[in-house]
Amino acid sequence: MDQRISFVTLAVADLDATRRFYVDGLGWVPELDVPGEVMMFRAGPQLVLSLWARAEFEAEVGALMAGPGVAPVTIAHNVASPDEVDAVLATARAAGSPHVQPGVRRDWGGYTGYFADPDGFRWEVAHNPDPALGAIVLP
């Protein structure tokens, strides 16, 4: 198996609310938008973020785990500077994110903050000063 990820698919409760957040709020442009079913965004040269209506997801994949707390996964968006971290977090706040954790300096030398989408999926917005990692994750 090749070492790569092609799709990341998240099951969402309200695809219309998700559309408002990602398209209207964050300014993302879907590659595919099937109302009531799925939206797909190109998230990298060979990576698609798929936001799939929960009922459609469960019909194909199976029942979702449920309970309180945060989903045990984060999606990272790396940027070139701490100022860009703060700008992205401000955009998420203006888009209606239900949770924005301000950027802070981390023990490992980077600067990160978090926001949640309408379903609570956490996005880490990060500046990592390591040039080797920057060569991998920055455009």
Rank of each mutant, 00 (worst) to 15 (best):
T91R: 05
A116R: 01
E84I: 07
A92D: 12
H127Q: 11
Q101M: 04
L49Y: 13
V38W: 07
D107L: 05
V73L: 06
W52L: 15
G69D: 12
V73W: 00
P68I: 01
L51P: 15
G113W: 05
V61W: 13
R105V: 07
V100F: 15
A76K: 13
V61K: 12
A63D: 15
W123P: 00
V8H: 05
H77G: 01
Q46E: 04
A53N: 07
E124M: 08
T18W: 09
G120W: 08
V104T: 12
G120R: 10
L32M: 04
D119K: 13
H99G: 14
D83P: 06
R122F: 10
S81F: 07
L64D: 10
G96F: 01
D119H: 09
R19T: 11
V29M: 13
A43M: 05
G27E: 06
P72N: 04
S97T: 07
P82Q: 12
F57H: 15
G109R: 02
S97G: 02
M65Q: 12
R42Y: 10
D130S: 05
D130L: 08
M39E: 05
E37C: 14
L49S: 12
T74N: 08
P72R: 02
T112N: 10
D24A: 02
T9G: 08
D130Y: 04
L89G: 13
R105T: 15
V79G: 03
R106N: 07
E58D: 14
A17P: 02
T112S: 12
V61E: 06
T91C: 07
W28T: 00
G36P: 10
G109K: 02
V88K: 09
G110F: 07
G109A: 04
A55T: 15
P82W: 09
L138D: 02
D83F: 07
M39G: 04
A63L: 06
P35K: 05
H77I: 01
L64K: 01
G69Y: 08
R42M: 10
G69E: 05
G103T: 00
W52F: 15
A92T: 08
A94F: 03
V70A: 10
Y111A: 01
A132D: 03
F21G: 11
V34T: 03
L15A: 12
F115L: 00
A76T: 06
M40W: 02
G67K: 09
V100M: 11
D33K: 03
A11V: 13
A55L: 09
R54L: 14
G44W: 03
V85M: 06
R20G: 05
T9H: 08
L10R: 07
V29I: 15
Y22M: 13
A76F: 09
W108N: 03
Q46D: 00
N128I: 02
P98R: 12
P30A: 12
D16K: 14
R93C: 10
S97R: 04
N78I: 03
G109V: 00
Q101W: 10
G134Y: 01
G62P: 14
P139I: 08
V12W: 09
D24P: 04
G69N: 09
P82R: 13
T112E: 08
A17E: 11
H127R: 09
